[in-house]
Simulated assay, not measured.
Amino acid sequence: MRDRRIVLWRHGQTAWNLERRFQGTTDIPLTESGLDQARRAARLLAALRPDAILSSDLQRTTATAAELAALTGLDVTYDEGLRETYAGAWQGLTHEEIVARYAEQYAAWKQGEPVRRGGGELETEVAERAAPVVERGVDKLPDSGTLVVVSHGGTIRTTIGRLIGLPPHTWEALGGLSNCSWSVLGETVRGWRLMEHNAGSLPEPVLGDDD
């Protein structure tokens, strides 16, 4: 039986994160704090002995992935399919500006309706481009291998939703990820299972009746 693992790791802090600006596909660099976060997280994730690293090609993710690559000696494979959601007119706006200018659209999105935020991508379209990238990466692993995917909060959430089979209108229930935190999917006989979400420490074994 295969026992593979996917670690979906969000990038470190950016200035737009601090300003609560919607980044989307805008290519924003890490702050110094973001680099520090990436270095700390990389030291932990290196202990998992990953077999491969995939990354979005935006600089906030490539800089994050580089810290893990430096510790593990692994090459990073970059794929634009792992980029954050393109959100058109929302990109560059603060949370408050989005709520003020696009109140109905924002409310509909929060309620789980399919919404092209700012005229951009649907969440299902993000999952349709990102999840296959992850699946192709996993297919190259050994039977007990670990894949680290460095991506963005929205893309990670939709990819998890797709891989574990949740209906799209429920994906928001997964919640967001903090900068440089990660989620872990483990392989079971019934498919992928969410083992950890928005974690900042190494996965612990589940000891109990639910294992």
Rank of each mutant, 00 (worst) to 15 (best):
L93G: 09
V115T: 06
E113W: 02
G200A: 13
Q37H: 07
R43C: 04
V148H: 01
N198S: 02
G24P: 11
D27Q: 11
E84R: 10
T94R: 08
R40H: 07
A52M: 10
Y78E: 15
P203G: 08
S183M: 10
W182F: 15
D79W: 12
T158A: 15
E113K: 14
L147H: 01
E96I: 01
D27Y: 09
R10N: 06
S55Q: 00
R116M: 01
V76C: 04
V138K: 08
D79V: 05
L45G: 01
T85E: 12
V76T: 14
T62G: 05
D57G: 13
T124V: 05
S181K: 13
P205T: 11
H11Q: 12
D211F: 13
T72G: 07
T159L: 03
G81M: 05
K140R: 15
I156D: 01
E125D: 14
A199I: 00
P167R: 13
W182I: 10
L93R: 15
S201I: 11
D79S: 13
I53C: 00
L174A: 10
I53A: 11
T124L: 02
L141D: 03
G119S: 03
T62V: 09
A66I: 00
L8V: 10
T61I: 09
R20Y: 07
T61F: 07
L207D: 06
G145Q: 10
Q13M: 12
G118P: 05
A199W: 04
A41T: 12
L8D: 12
D139M: 12
Q111E: 14
R116V: 00
E123W: 09
Q59Y: 02
I160D: 01
A15Q: 14
V184P: 03
G88N: 02
A41W: 10
V184Q: 04
V189N: 00
T188V: 14
A89M: 03
G137T: 04
L194W: 06
E80D: 14
S201Y: 06
R157D: 08
P167V: 12
P114G: 03
G120L: 07
A52T: 09
F22V: 04
V206R: 15
G137W: 02
G200P: 08
L54G: 04
S56M: 10
L93N: 08
Q23F: 03
I6M: 05
R4C: 06
T170H: 11
L147V: 02
H95A: 13
G92T: 03
W171L: 08
S151I: 02
A38N: 02
T158C: 14
I6Q: 04
P205W: 04
V148D: 03
P205K: 11
A38D: 01
D143E: 15
E104S: 13
L68N: 01
V148R: 07
E123N: 06
A65M: 07
D3W: 10
A103I: 05
A70Y: 10
D139Y: 06
T124K: 05
T64L: 08
W171E: 00
V184S: 05
P142G: 14
L68S: 02
E113I: 00
E172W: 14
A173T: 14
V148K: 00
L185Y: 08
S201L: 14
A52V: 11
R136Q: 15
G153I: 09
Q23A: 12
D3I: 02
T85L: 13
G34Q: 07
E187C: 05
